[in-house]
Structures are given as C-alpha cells and as structure tokens.
Amino acid sequence: MKINGMSNSLPDETRLLLSGYVLDDLTSEEMEQVERLVLEDPAALKELQALQASFEVIPQGLTQVTPPARLRERIGSPPGETVVRQRGGMWRVLMGLVAIATLALATDNLRLRNQLAQRIEADRVASILQQPNSRLIALQGNESEAAGTLLFTPGNWKEVIVSLGDLPPLPPEEIYRMWLALDNGTVIYCGEFNTEDNGSVFVRFTPDEAPPKGVKATQLLVTIDGSQTEPDPSRNPVMTGAI
C-alpha cells in the first residue's frame, strides 16, 4: 500500500518519550508527564496512538505459517479437547518410524540409490514435461551463485521436480527446506533436501499440502533449517524464484 510521510512533527525527544510510554519503560514521573502532555496536546495524543498502533501491528511482520490441517477440526471445540490430538500423536509416531527407516536406508549405498532415484525422476520429468501447461521456474541464490529450476504443472502441486546447483553443502545438523509462498500471505512447506558433495541436487517432492482453491502461488523459497527441528519458514531464504 502507498505510504506517505507522517503528518506529525513533534520534537524527536518527545517522540522517544512517547515511544517509551508504549514500551512501558518510563519512570512513574515520566509516565505522568506523558499523560499530561497527550491530554493537553492533540498532536502528541495522535502520535502516541500512532506509536501504539505501530507496536500492535508488529505480528503482521511475521511470515505466516500454515497451521496443520487437523487444527481446523478442533476450532469451536472447548480447549482441552483431545480426540484429534490422539490421532495426531499416532501420526507422529508413524512419521517417527518412517524417519528411522529412512535414516537406516540413508546409510546404505548412497551413490547407487541416488543413481536409481535420478533414473526414476527422469521418467517423472518426462511425464510432467508432456503436460501441455507444465512450467519451469528459475531459482536464484540470494547471496550465492546457486541457481536451478523447478518443474511443475499449474493446478497440480502434488508433484514437483527440483534441480539445483552450486548450493553450499551443509553440515549434518542442517538441511535445506523448500517453501511455496502464496498471495494470501501464507507459506506451504514443500519438503527438504541435501546436496551432493558438489553442491547439486535433483529431487522430486510430493508436498502434503496444496494451495487452497483460488489462492495463487507467488514465490518459491529455499531456507537453511536445523535437520532435527520443526520446519521454520521464518528463516531468511537463501534462494528464491518468482512464479
């Protein structure tokens, strides 16, 4: 939205005092001083309210995280409702088992499995490319030479193919994660990956979640996250691509 300058021209010292009032770090004498000032001077009151409003909109600066789909089922139920939670708990146990199995596989003959995966994905690439409306999105490193492409079919976010190069390999405790930003301000988690030793990666994602109907995807983001932590979309992207 269009931003014009402030219509208020109070001295900086007064402005800082008003700011201290909103942040509640004034002495009781200073607080009384501010309260007298704003009751006598409409410009000071207006500025105090603008500072208060600025403080209150700070959460709008967060990159929105999409809540898990199961949460919607709980809305309207009294707090402490546990039926869905138990289901979620079981799901987490299953995911944990899958993660353990994946970890076990990961230690086994990595190169051979990568070659196999690439062959499978080459078939999937061909299959997506055959779709008449398939699209390639360019991704570019924000502070590195990293570059790559993402292939998908608009309207079908169930399968995307990503090919990237020149990404710095990460230590074991970190991992790359990919996100899809939507025009309603939310972000969808797509999946995670690590690079080969040479910094390249070729991976197929099957995201659990697709953009809601009528909501457009605007940007792809790649972040570096802790490999053992929950995906955190608030991290600064290291690669981006406009859709």
Binding site: I3, N4, G5, M6, V22, L51, F55, V57, I58
Partner: peptide, 11 residues
C-alpha cells in the same frame, strides 16, 4: 519503535 512508526507513515 519510532523508526517503525516513521516507516509506516500515514498508514
């Protein structure tokens, strides 16, 4: 906070 308020201007 003062800077944030300035950046947000008349909005």
């Amino acid at each position: 906070l003062v800077e944030l308020r300035k950046r947000l201007g008349n909005t």
